[in-house]
Amino acid sequence: MSDVIFQAENIVKHFGGVHAVEDVSLSVIAGSIQAIIGPNGAGKSTLFNALSGFYKCDSGKVTFKGVDITTAPIHRRIAMGMGRTFQTSSIFPNLSVYDNLLIGLQSAANLAFRFRPVDATQHKTIEEKAERLLDFVNLKASAHRPVAELAHGSQRLCEIAMSLSTDPVLVMLDEPMAGLAHAETTRVVEVIRKLHSELGLTVLFVEHNMRVVLSLAQRIMVLDRGRVLAEGTPAEISANEAVRDAYIGKEVIESV
């Protein structure tokens, strides 16, 4: 059962004198939902950026599907089946939702470098895939509106759909609930749940919202000051004294 799809060993990332990530190791089981939590400045986002190739690791090793990708360029990671979102939605603001998806779809179909127009069958395949993605995140009604005009939550859903457009097996979400209103949170949580239950994808996410983490994640890793403080199931993490002291806060855990 424990089929590790993504593994990081002894990751170190310093910025000058700041030891943002210090010797962190992590394994992600294929088909699971795992979360990384920790107080502000714990190094969650840095770790995430190091794992997804946005930063170079100072040392350590990252393996994806058994292949060493520590120094692999981003486009190779995407081709291997990695997808990610950012803390502040990273989208093409002036393009329509449909076009935002189109860029990833034509990239996945190896058409991005083509100078001639796509032929009818390829066009049809892409359009069908776009429809499916729009359905999945429920953005069909806004398909032809520029993303910049959508509400924050819809932009986040658009970004998740974009990260799916390249057919990933592992989706990495960097604080998917950041800056969302309560109602929007529910929509996004539903979509993330569906990533796992409907599409069978492996999900690794960083999140601040404890309710979301405890309700979604199967395994949780707690970071504090760049190091791993604890690791385990939601129940184990909730019961962990060190984690409680570090930041979670008693009320939240008891209320869940």
């Binding site: 946005f54 997808g83 990273s90 989208i91 076009d99 860029i103 990239s107 991005a112």
Partner: peptide, 17 residues
């Protein structure tokens, strides 16, 4: 279209492969 995507947001374009 790929060029326009790069203009709009190069980081995102990279993460779309």
């Amino acid at each position: 279209r790929s060029l326009i995507a790069i203009k709009e947001n190069e980081t995102r374009a990279r993460y779309l492969g």
